[in-house]
Nucleic acid binder design. Structure first.
Lengths: 238, 238
DNA sequence: CGCTACCTTGACGCGAATCAAGCGGCGTGG
DNA sequence: CCACGCCGCTTGATTCGCGTCAAGGTAGCG
């Protein structure tokens, strides 16, 4: 049987993001049932999907669009903690641990997102070892990423961290069709918020990379012209 | 029936650390069975329990002692990522995600630790939703802690981070019987490795706290004499 | 009793934050 | 259609926190 992936995301079975999702471990029958326990929304660029300190009421499942997860410091400066794209789930950490959100999710571009009912989700993971196991692996990956970020922030200088940040963006969103340009448009401030620096320093570092012929900058587009040199600059050991 | 907690940790049923462990969700029968699928070891202070890049062969379960989890930077400087104590499990992240260890575990003092067979562990989490769920909650907590650490490193100055570090040690290991002295002895270098600074700067900051009458230093003992002021210094929002 | 590992303090220099000012693009309203 | 204003980008000047280097003290251990 050939699966009809029509892109009708109200029907999980036909969701275009299905193959990239941890929910793909569910069989067709369960996916069809899932569709009856969720609602769909769209979010404009810049809109909050959920907010720090809010209580989760469901699991977010990204059908389309890019999202940043941020925490805001006491002085108002943001830190980008994670990035998400289609097929990703959001809000699983708070849902699993039964806590409030400790960060906010904001749309980086117009998004289409489904919300799976909380109780249905709890029931699903109890009935389905594979589903919970996939989610644990996801959280484990996030933990590893976070701890690598800790290493980076505590031991590396700005130049190395910025190189890592660009490589992280590449790993997360990939390139556009030209095979060199990062497939995501972030403001300089957002790049700084991931890297853990000021906007001005981020700008200076990017323009230094540009002078070093490692990248090319055109507005918010970033083209990586010398990937080996960028990797070398990042000083990654493992 | 009254449980015999004799402290014989070769029998999980009677392990003194049981009540603090995620494994406590198992019933008596399962705990008894667990004892037949594990081995016990002791580790001297400073000894490696597992190493970065090693393959996990089982789940470590701490019966006694304190442990640091560290990652070593390319310049040889360590970063303390997590701390563990009796009742804690170790090595679950790599085991779940099926990867190599991305950090090393080192005994901060003489330890007694059991190793649960890997395949038995996999079988246990498949047969027992509650066990896996407890472990997910544990990893979720670790992720939250790690992301708070990221915030701290990227936005706070040394004074705030050091205050946070002392509060973290208090939250993890608590006080000794006097109700003020941290129940853990770390070298200045280890404190620096958690805080993300140099040994010299850590020493200077601790001695500044001492002058400010926030703490009292006696060798490696740290007595928190003004907890409210320490909390205020840490600038914690949530 | 001496060696080694850890702790402590001082001096210095650099990386990056901060402050300030000018530029450019885009959307809105006259 | 053009002018205005706002927001993001960029660059320069200045400051300063903290890392690094150096030297000396102290405590524990064989």
């Amino acid at each position: 049987m050939c699966l009809m992936v029509t892109g009708d995301h109200t029907q999980c079975l036909y969701c275009s993001a299905r193959v990239h999702s941890v929910l793909n471990v569910l069989d067709n029958e369960k996916l069809a049932d899932l569709s009856t326990h969720k609602s769909c929304s769209t979010y404009k660029k810049g809109q909050y999907i959920f907010s720090e300190n809010g209580m989760p009421y469901g699991l977010f499942c990204v059908n389309k669009g890019k999202i940043k997860l941020i925490a805001t410091g006491f002085d108002g400066k943001d830190q980008i903690l994670r990035l998400a794209k289609e097929g990703d789930i959001l809000g699983y950490r708070a849902l699993i641990s039964g806590e409030r959100y400790h960060c906010s999710a904001i749309a980086l571009e117009d998004c289409s997102i489904c919300i799976i009912d909380k109780n249905y989700f709890y029931q699903s993971i109890q009935d389905n070892f594979q589903l919970l196991f996939e989610i644990v692996k996801k959280i484990s990956g996030d933990l590893k990423t976070a701890e690598e970020h800790i290493m980076s922030l505590s031991q590396k200088n700005l130049r190395e961290r910025m190189a890592e940040a660009l490589l992280f963006l590449k790993a997360t969103y990939g390139f556009t069709t030209d095979g060199q340009t990062l497939n995501v448009m972030l403001s300089r401030e957002e790049i700084a918020d991931y890297t853990g620096t000021s906007t001005e320093s981020a700008i200076r570092q990017l323009s230094e990379f540009s002078h070093d012929k490692i990248i090319e900058l055109t507005g918010k587009k970033i083209k990586i012209t010398d990937l080996p040199k960028l990797i070398k600059t990042a000083n990654i050991n493992d």
